[in-house]
Each structure stands twice: as structure tokens, then as C-alpha cells.
């Protein structure tokens, strides 16, 4: 489980704000435990785990939209501003999360965990070529967004 924890953690960053990641990672792990019988039979365990992580993340997002606005988030933002542009790491993450899902999950694994397209492809159940296409197109969109924000 530890082997794939970093991948799941980076993957969750494509959906959720940083302060919710650890909770949802624990929830995901619990769900994986409950579905061990499926894990034993699947020949692609990592995409299966990431599917659970995605389900958990989307459910957390739905619940957050129903609940009143959270006050927990801002405390960690101050010391994470990037050099010169005034954008914090959380701001960068928020911009990343505005991309289409196929692009942002590949980019999250690439930018946060610095995984290669082979590894990303295995994790997402895609071919490396498809991953490279998603990374390229995602990066193009992200680049445009960031340039508008004056980054870097």
C-alpha cells in the first residue's frame, strides 16, 4: 500500500485542496481494504485504486458544495508563495484543477511526483503515448492560464 500511497496522494491533488488530501487518502485506503477481494482478482491494481480515490474525491467535492464554506483552508498559504509571481503553490494547484480531468490527473502525477509517462500510463491504465498527448495538451492549457496570471 505504501508503494502506491504517493501516487494516490498526487492523484488526489488533481481534485481536492491540499488540506483535504490526507483525510481522503485515509478514506480511500479504507475503501481499498473493504474491496480486497476485488483487488486480489484484478490484474490492474493501481488503476483500480485510483478509481476508488477518484470516487472518494468527487464525493468529497459534492459534500463540500452542499456544506457551508469552510474556514480551515487559509492558514497554510502564507509561506508557500512562488518566487516572484506572487502565486502560491495552492494557487498553482487551483489553476491546475481547472483543466479537464484527463489532463490534470496526468499533470498532477507528472508535476508533483515527477513520474514519467510510462509510470503514469501504468497508474492510469493508459498507453504512454496517450499520457504524453494528455501531458502536452494539458501543459499547453496550463501554460496559457499561468501566463495570464503573470507566472513565473
Amino acid at each position: 500500500m505504501q508503494r502506491h500511497a504517493a501516487t494516490m496522494r498526487a492523484y488526489l491533488h488533481a481534485f481536492l485542496p491540499p488540506h483535504e488530501i490526507d483525510d481522503q487518502l485515509q478514506e480511500t485506503t479504507l475503501a481499498i481494504w473493504r474491496g480486497l477481494s476485488i483487488l486480489r482478482t484484478t490484474n490492474r491494481p493501481v488503476p483500480w485504486m485510483l478509481g476508488i480515490a477518484r470516487h472518494r474525491a468527487l464525493r468529497a467535492l459534492r459534500q463540500r458544495h452542499k456544506a457551508p464554506a469552510s474556514l480551515a483552508e487559509p492558514e497554510q498559504l502564507a509561506d508557500r508563495s512562488s518566487g516572484g509571481s506572487g502565486l502560491t503553490a495552492e494557487d498553482l494547484l487551483r489553476i491546475l484543477q481547472k483543466l479537464p480531468e484527463a489532463y490534470r490527473v496526468s499533470l498532477a502525477l507528472r508535476l508533483i511526483e515527477q513520474k514519467g509517462s510510462e509510470e503514469i500510463g501504468k497508474a492510469l491504465g493508459m498507453t504512454p503515448g496517450s499520457v504524453r498527448v494528455n501531458l502536452t495538451r494539458g501543459m499547453m492549457q496550463l501554460r496559457q492560464q499561468l501566463l495570464r496570471e503573470g507566472y513565473p
Binding site: W33, S82, A89, L93, L111, I112, R143
Partner: peptide, 30 residues
Amino acid sequence: QMLQQLEQDLSVFRQEGELSLPELPPRALR
């Protein structure tokens, strides 16, 4: 260049050390 900067800025979210996650049952049991 932008990619490198992004990697550096987003590295704060990278997993450092091990998480306190339960391990799967040993393969023999499975």
C-alpha cells in the same frame, strides 16, 4: 523552463516519508 518552475513550486505537495497507512494482508493469506 516553466515546467521546471512548476515542479519546484508544486514539490511542496510531494509525499515525503511514509504515510501511516495500513498494509495489505500478506500474500500467503490472500
